[in-house]
Design a protein around this nucleic acid. Structure first.
Lengths: 66, 66
DNA sequence: TTAAAAAGTAAAGTTTATTTTACATTTTGG
DNA sequence: CCAAAATGTAAAATAAACTTTACTTTTTAA
């Protein structure tokens, strides 16, 4: 599973810390998700998509091994 | 968080058991998700959306308390 | 109406997401 | 260049997702 959070974050001029704050998770969670260390819950994915005016499908991409 | 899995499952004529099999989780997981007992991971949400030709956003609806 | 299938539920266990704290490295702006 | 901000990382703890087993209740079809 890939995601484009880092890119969207750049487009929206947000740091990991302020994205985390807006979404209501810790900064380390954002970092870990960006780095592919774990996959967020659907609630988090929906919140991120909403914030970025994107779909969950464009933000998170299924891969063969998922 | 609400979801419309039960409805989509009906539209696609699938039992909890065969949906579970197609998605690769246990039947109890499908049941628990339908009953709102827990919120699936983003991978699961994407797989369900794909199977149902729906978007994650239409399948899973954020609520105020999320 | 009855047997079979499907759905609901529950407890115990495993795995994975997420937090907290804390520190190291990298990037950025003055 | 230098300080501050941002990012990376890691360990320990907690919460939540998910599995397995097993049993009960409800629905469906013959």
């Amino acid at each position: 599973m890939k995601n484009t959070i880092k890119i969207e974050r750049a487009r929206h001029n947000l740091t990991q810390a302020n994205l985390a704050e807006k979404i209501g998770v810790s900064r380390q969670s954002i970092n870990a998700i960006e780095k592919g260390k774990f996959i967020p819950s659907t609630v988090l994915a929906l919140k991120l998509a909403k914030l970025f005016n994107a779909s969950v499908e464009t933000l998170f991409l299924l891969e063969d091994d998922d």
